[in-house]
């Protein structure tokens, strides 16, 4: 059973990125559960976790949101590579936060970045995931926590 603190750590890692990098805080939407195939947008940063918990945590965002985020960061390169870098950095931050808080119990992988409509996110069949919408400006991304 996931602890609230664990979920909060991942959520804070994500919202913190927006607050710090774009100087504009993100809020979280109404969280819910989901079973089965992962829900993803165009760009997804994934960290794998093993140890006390097993599974994946990923941040997936639509291109439009990333574009605005990059603009807010005064970036003017909106290439595919930059988008990948950006979700990679968000995942990096989530991973860093998790290491700080649960480094003792978790083994946390280096983030990997996936893009496209149907990325291969390793997930156990029947695994229930927490979906936490990350709302920023008018856009919405998702933080998916899929751990056992």
């Amino acid at each position: 059973m996931l602890y609230e603190q664990e979920l909060k750590t991942f959520v804070e890692g994500t919202t913190n990125f927006f607050e710090v990098a774009a100087q504009q805080p993100a809020s979280i939407g109404s969280p819910y559960l989901m079973e089965g195939a992962p829900a993803v947008h165009e760009y997804t940063g994934v960290i794998k976790i093993s140890g006390k918990r097993e599974g994946v945590v990923y941040f997936t965002a639509p291109k439009a949101m990333l574009t605005v985020l990059l603009m807010k960061m005064q970036e003017n390169d909106f290439s595919h590579e930059t988008m990948r870098d950006l979700v990679g950095e968000v995942a990096n931050t989530i991973s860093g936060n998790a290491r700080r808080d649960f480094g003792r119990d978790f083994v946390i992988s280096v983030p990997s970045v996936l893009s496209g409509e149907k990325p291969e996110i390793p997930q156990r069949p029947g695994q229930r995931s927490f979906i936490i919408p990350i709302n920023w400006r008018s856009h919405s991304a998702k933080l998916v926590v899929s751990l056992t």
């Binding site: 059973m1 609230e4 809020s27 979280i28 969280p31 229930r128």
Partner: peptide, 18 residues
Amino acid sequence: LSGNDFLPMVLKLDELLA
């Protein structure tokens, strides 16, 4: 109210389903 207030609920919901 914000999404943060719903985090414990969704955890509890998950637990309840389990």
